[in-house]
Design a binder for these strands. Sequence first.
DNA 1: TTACTATATGCAAAAACTGCATACCCATTT
DNA 2: AAATGGGTATGCAGTTTTTGCATATAGTAA
Lengths: 91, 91
Amino acid sequence: MNKKQLIAQLSGSLNLSKADAERTFDTITNTILDALKGDDSVKIAGFGTYKVAKRKARVGRNPRTGEQIQIAASQKVKFLPAKALKEVFNK
Amino acid sequence: MNKKQLIAQLSGSLNLSKADAERTFDTITNTILDALKGDDSVKIAGFGTYKVAKRKARVGRNPRTGEQIQIAASQKVKFLPAKALKEVFNK
DNA sequence: TTACTATATGCAAAAACTGCATACCCATTT
DNA sequence: AAATGGGTATGCAGTTTTTGCATATAGTAA
């Protein structure tokens, strides 16, 4: 499922136009992103937690050439599924 | 940020009551979950992709006793941040 | 208050990460 | 509707990172 299909379905369930459904959806993702930018984590009970994980610089390797490479520190968004979410997929 | 705070903020941005904001939010997460249950992945352009990842069975350990334990195969929801999302946090 | 979530422990094995080329799928534009 | 551009998936190896086990406690949320 891609974003377009998701929006179409939400448009139905929420009784909104597709444009409004998309606006609503974008507002939510942007709110989550803004919170994460503020170095926060976003916990959503029953769904999961979004966290910004800091990754240290380290030595990697180009798998094609085998050559060693210095990898810079970086950050990435991690999603930790809530307990309820795991159970859905393991029962 | 927790769910309550997120809902409060969305209530403002979306010009909805908190109850409606929460209903809207829950509808979205449920829609995503349902899609994932159907063995699908959910791709959201500019945000990321939710996927169900299969995890193999393996040998674990009770950290309290040190005893070895067989861990069954399982599934978990993975979130892969989109390129745009990574850039936000690395610039 | 009741429910969920984080933490903390040791350790084995799975999985992620890196560069990069190709194939592919999606979205936007003409 | 078709074309184009861009993000994303895949595969490769080897090292780093994460995962997840049991369980109690502490903290937070509904």
